[in-house]
């Protein structure tokens, strides 16, 4: 990936710094004490990861409920045989583990409303990264086809596409900051109008670029950038 595209990416560290949360592909805020992202259900690979985490948490719960089972078996087993208390042991351990997993999922379901906006913004950031990846692939195809340096690349209005992406990046960052302020303070702060105005200005510029290049084959990238920008603006308006 070229340096200019790499600079446009919003790194995981930056997202975490701006949002104030540990952000992963499946969970926000870690497995314990965090919440799962809604988008895990749209991607089979992430869904598989989520299901495996559920299994791991269940088994881990069995580990921590083992002493309960041990107490049960010590109290109930008599001289009938060495494994006489196995059934009550399993009932207590598995039952308690299921209760713990249920409580964990319930806690996440309650907490999810708190992170709903952040989840939407993170999904938009994923889409934004997909667009950058698509441009990087185009660049690779250009270099593989051996285009001379002086010949225009297949992305001949590249500067404007990159400008649109830069504006989208700024909007996303502003949204992450606003979301964090609102999430943490639960109130309206003086900067909200300024941030919203910045997003609206960026969006207008992207829309102008999109109109200019609607006819050519690169309109798609601008369209994507515009769509992300509009979603971000919608989220912001809902937040405010």
């Amino acid at each position: 990936m070229k340096a200019e595209l790499a600079d446009l990416m919003i790194s995981e560290q930056e997202i975490e710094r701006l949002s104030g949360c540990d952000v992963g592909s499946i969970f926000i805020g870690g497995v314990f004490g965090g919440v799962y992202r809604t988008s895990v259900f749209q991607d089979p690979q992430r869904l598989m990861g989520f299901c495996l985490t559920e299994v791991a948490v269940f088994l881990l719960s069995c580990v921590f409920t083992l002493p309960l089972g041990l107490v049960t078996i010590r109290n109930t087993s008599s001289n009938i045989g060495p494994n006489a208390g196995m059934v009550p042991f399993l009932v207590v351990v598995i039952g308690s583990a299921l209760l713990l997993v249920g409580a964990w999922n319930g806690y996440m379901a309650i907490r999810r409303s708190h992170f709903q906006r952040l989840m939407h913004l993170l999904d938009e950031i994923d889409r934004y990264h997909d667009v950058i990846q698509a441009i990087a692939v185009l660049d690779q195809l250009d270099s593989a086809s051996g285009l001379p340096a002086n010949q225009p690349s297949s992305l001949h209005n590249r500067a404007e596409v990159l400008e649109a992406l830069r504006l989208t990046r700024d909007s996303l960052i502003a949204s992450l900051m606003t979301e964090r302020i609102l999430r943490e303070s639960r109130g309206l702060l003086a900067r909200r109008q300024e941030l919203l105005a910045s997003i609206e200005t960026n969006l207008t510029t992207v829309r102008a670029l999109e109109m200019k290049h609607q006819a050519n084959e690169y309109g798609q990238f601008l369209n994507d950038a515009l769509e992300i920008g509009m979603r971000v603006q919608r989220e912001m308006q809902q937040m405010l």
């Binding site: 975490e16 540990d22 992963g24 969970f27 805020g29 870690g30 497995v31 314990f32 004490g33 965090g34 985490t53 791991a56 948490v57 088994l59 881990l60 580990v63």
Partner: peptide, 19 residues
């Protein structure tokens, strides 16, 4: 820094290794 994520990851991975 990122203690919650570290605890989750260390707990799950150590559980898997021990298991």
């Amino acid at each position: 820094v990122k203690l919650k994520s570290k605890i989750s990851a260390l707990m799950i991975s150590s559980f898997c290794f021990f298991a």
